[in-house]
Design a protein around this nucleic acid. Structure first.
Length: 566
RNA sequence: UGGGGCGUAGCCAAGUGGUAAGGCAGCGGCCUUUGGAGCCGCCAUUCGGAGGUUCGAGUCCUCCCGCCCCAGCCA
C-alpha cells in the first residue's frame, strides 16, 4: 500500500492519468462484448534462470493490468523441462516479484501441478484420433518436417490405431522405452505453412529427476502442449506473452478447441531490449559462468537481483515499465530512460550526505587549530520532513581531488589558486597555494583562508561565489570503499557473435580510502544516499561496520562533464 | 523466396476519418549554498515509399520497400 502511494507521488502529471495500450483496448472490448466477465492474467516464468528487467516489464504488465481491472494475476512456474530447472530459481523468482511489489496471494502454481491432467487430456486427444505415438527419432522428425518453403511428409507411424497409440503412450509413461526413442505428437497438418502445426511433439521421454515431481514421471510435456492448457485450467482470460509465440497461437487454439475447454485469449507484445546490455538468459548465464561478473546479482547485471544490489528501487522499475509502454513494435529502450526513472525516485527520497571519493587535503590557515564547529545541513531539500543534521567542521578537511585545478580551464567554478569557493554548509574560502611532494611534484595539500563572516546562514553568507564544493572534516570522517559501476558494454547494441568483445573493461572501479561524513557509521546494507554532487550510492550487501562499502547506483546529471567533454 | 508480425522525431510512444499527446535524449534561458533539483522555451508542415478513395487520410484501399520471428524431443 505504501509502495503504491510512493509510486503515485513519483509521477505527478499527465502520464499517469490513464495508461493506454493495445492490450487494454482488447480487454475493454472483451469485457464490453461479454467474451469475459473479469480479467485474470498470469506471469509464467520457467525456473531456469534469474529474472531480469525484461521480465519486470512482463510482471508489471500482467500484475498491473489485472490490478487496474480489479482482476487477478497468478504466478505459475512453467516447469516442463527438468533438465534445466532448479528450486534455486523458483526461490529467487518469488523473491524478485515480491520485491518489485506484486502479490499473487494463494495463487502460486506449477505446470507440474497439471501433469496428471495433461496426461489425461493427451489420452483424450489420442482417443479422438488427434495424437499419435511416433517412433521417429529427433533427426528423422526434423527431416520429415520439411522446410519453410516445402511441406513436410507424414510419419510412417501417423496412422496407428487409437488402441495401439493408447497402449504405447501408457508404456511410455511406465518407462518401457529409452530417452528419445518415442514421442507423442499432435496430429494436425504436415503440410501447414505454419511449421508449428506440422504435428508438434507433445511428450518426450526424459528419464530425469524433476525438482518437484522427482522420479514420478519419465515423460514430460513440451511447452507447446503444456502452456495453453495450464492457462485454461487456471481460468486465465488473457494470456499475455511475447511476440515469438504469435505463430504458436493457432496451435494453442487448436488444442483448446479439440479439448473443448476454457479458452483464454492470447495477446502478444514486444519484449524489452535495453541499450548497453544483453538480455538473453543464455548470455547472462555465460557472463556468470565465465566470470565476467561476480554472479547473477552483480550490480552491473540487468537482473532484478543485480539492480536491487546496485540500489535500484522497485518504484523506479515500475515507473520505467509505465513510461516505456507496451506495443508490438520491436524496440530498444535507451538506458537513460531507466536511469532517469531512478533519479526521479531517489531525488525525492534519498538522504543527502557528503562523501569524498578521492580525498585531497585542504588546510584552512586562519582557522583555529583546535576548533570544531557543528554545522547544520539539510537532509533533503526536496523533503523538509527529512530534517537536518549536524556535521563537524575543522581546520583540516578533505575535498574531492577533482574540485581543485592548479591550472583551471574556462568556466571551472571550483578551487584553483586565488579562487574563491563555498564549502557547502560552511564558509567561503580562498585558495592561497598548494603543497607538493618534492619528489613527484604531486599536489599533496591545498592551502586556503576562510572568511569568518560567511558562515552558512549568517547575513554575510549571501555573498555569491560561483562554486560550491563538498568536503568532510579530516579528523572526523570515516573510511569507506566505493564501487563505481559503469555500463557493462561499450556499445549500445552488443549483438552478434562477438558480443563479448564489447564488454567494458572499466565497468567496475574499486575506490578505496574514501572519506565519508561520520553519521554514516550506522549505514546498513541497502540504505541509499545521495553523495552530494556525485551521485546516488547504496550500501552493498558485503558492507560491514568498520568496513563500509558503497555501490554507485547512478551518477547525478553532470552538466560540467558535458561542458568539459565538448 | 512459405507462414506470422512490425514500420509515427536520435530512442520509446499516443493517435480508432476532422488537421501530429507525452516521456527520454539534445539545445537555449531562468533560478540555485549540490554544475543536483525545479521552472520556461525550442525540437515531425508530417507519420517507411508511391498511387488511390474522400470536402478532409498517420488512420480506409492498392502496390512497393525495409526490419523482426518460425524448420528444438528449449521456453
Amino acid at each position: 500500500m505504501d509502495n503504491d502511494k510512493d509510486f503515485e507521488n513519483i509521477e505527478s502529471s499527465s502520464q499517469k492519468t490513464e495508461k493506454r495500450n493495445f492490450i487494454r483496448d482488447i480487454i475493454d472490448d472483451d469485457l464490453k462484448t461479454g467474451k469475459y466477465r473479469e480479467v485474470h492474467t498470469r506471469f509464467p516464468p520457467e525456473p531456469n534462470g534469474y529474472l531480469h528487467i525484461g521480465h519486470a516489464k512482463s510482471i508489471c504488465l500482467n500484475f498491473g493490468t489485472a490490478k487496474d481491472y480489479d482482476g487477478l494475476c497468478n504466478l505459475r512456474f512453467d516447469d516442463t523441462n527438468p533438465t534445466k530447472e532448479d528450486v534455486e530459481y523458483v526461490e529467487s523468482i518469488q523473491e524478485d516479484i515480491r520485491w518489485l511489489g506484486f502479490d499473487w496471494g494463494e495463487r502460486m502454481f506449477y505446470a507440474s501441478d497439471y501433469f496428471e491432467r495433461l496426461y489425461d487430456y493427451a489420452k483424450t486427444l489420442i482417443g479422438a484420433g488427434k495424437a499419435y505415438v511416433d517412433d521417429l527419432n529427433a533427426d528423422e522428425i526434423r527431416r520429415y518436417r520439411g522446410t519453410l518453403t516445402e511441406p513436410g511428409k507424414d510419419s510412417p507411424c501417423r496412422n496407428r490405431t487409437v488402441e495401439e497409440n493408447l497402449d504405447l503412450f501408457e508404456r511410455m509413461r511406465k518407462g518401457e522405452f529409452p530417452d528419445g526413442s518415442k514421442t507423442l505428437r499432435a496430429k494436425v497438418d504436415m503440410a501447414s505453412p505454419n511449421i508449428n502445426m506440422r504435428d508438434p511433439v507433445m511428450y518426450r521421454i526424459l528419464h530425469a529427476t524433476h525438482h518437484r515431481t522427482g522420479d514420478r514421471w519419465c515423460i514430460y510435456p513440451t511447452y507447446d502442449w503444456a502452456h495453453g492448457q495450464s492457462d485454461s485450467i487456471e481460468g486465465i482470460t488473457h494470456s499475455i506473452c511475447t511476440l515469438e509465440f504469435e505463430d504458436h497461437r493457432p496451435l494453442y487454439n487448436w488444442f483448446i478447441e479439440q479439448l473443448g475447454i476454457h479458452h483464454p485469449r492470447q495477446v502478444e507484445f514486444a519484449r524489452l531490449n535495453l541499450t548497453y546490455t544483453v538480455m538473453s538468459k543464455r548470455r547472462l548465464l555465460q557472463l556468470v559462468q565465465e566470470g565476467h561478473v561476480s554472479g547473477w546479482n552483480d550490480p552491473r547485471m540487468p537482473t532484478l537481483s543485480g539492480l536491487r544490489r546496485r540500489g535500484y528501487t522497485p518504484e523506479s522499475i515500475r515507473l520505467f515499465a509505465d513510461r516505456i509502454g507496451v506495443s508490438k513494435a520491436d524496440s530498444t529502450i535507451d538506458v537513460s530512460v531507466l536511469e532517469d526513472c531512478l533519479r526521479t525516485d531517489l531525488n525525492k527520497r534519498a538522504a543527502r550526505v557528503m562523501a569524498v571519493l578521492h580525498p585531497l587535503k585542504l588546510v584552512i590557515e586562519n582557522y583555529p587549530d583546535d576548533l570544531v564547529e557543528k554545522l547544520e545541513a539539510v537532509n533533503n531539500p526536496e523533503d523538509e520532513s527529512m530534517g537536518t543534521r549536524k556535521i563537524p567542521f575543522s581546520k583540516t578537511l578533505y575535498i574531492e581531488h577533482d574540485d581543485f585545478r592548479e591550472d583551471p580551464p574556462k568556466k571551472y567554478f571550483r578551487l584553483s589558486p586565488g579562487a574563491e569557493v563555498r564549502l557547502r554548509y560552511a564558509y567561503i574560502v580562498r585558495c592561497t597555494g598548494v603543497v607538493k611532494d618534492p619528489n613527484t611534484g604531486e599536489i599533496t595539500e591545498v592551502r586556503c583562508t576562510y572568511d569568518p563572516d560567511t558562515k552558512s546562514g549568517s547575513p554575510a553568507s549571501s555573498r555569491k561565489v560561483k562554486g560550491t564544493i563538498h568536503w568532510v572534516s579530516a579528523g572526523h570522517a570515516i573510511d569507506a570503499e566505493a564501487r563505481v559501476y559503469d555500463r557493462l558494454f561499450n556499445v549500445p547494441d552488443p549483438g552478434g557473435e562477438n558480443w563479448k568483445e564489447s564488454l567494458n573493461p572499466n565497468s567496475l572501479e574499486m575506490v578505496k580510502g574514501c572519506k565519508v561524513e561520520p553519521g554514516l557509521v550506522v549505514a546498513k546494507p541497502q540504505d541509499r544516499f545521495q553523495f552530494e554532487r556525485l551521485g546516488y550510492y547504496c550500501v552493498d550487501d558485503e558492507s560491514k561496520p568498520g568496513n563500509l562499502v558503497f555501490n554507485r547506483t547512478v551518477t547525478l546529471r553532470d552538466t560540467w562533464a558535458k561542458i568539459e567533454g565538448k
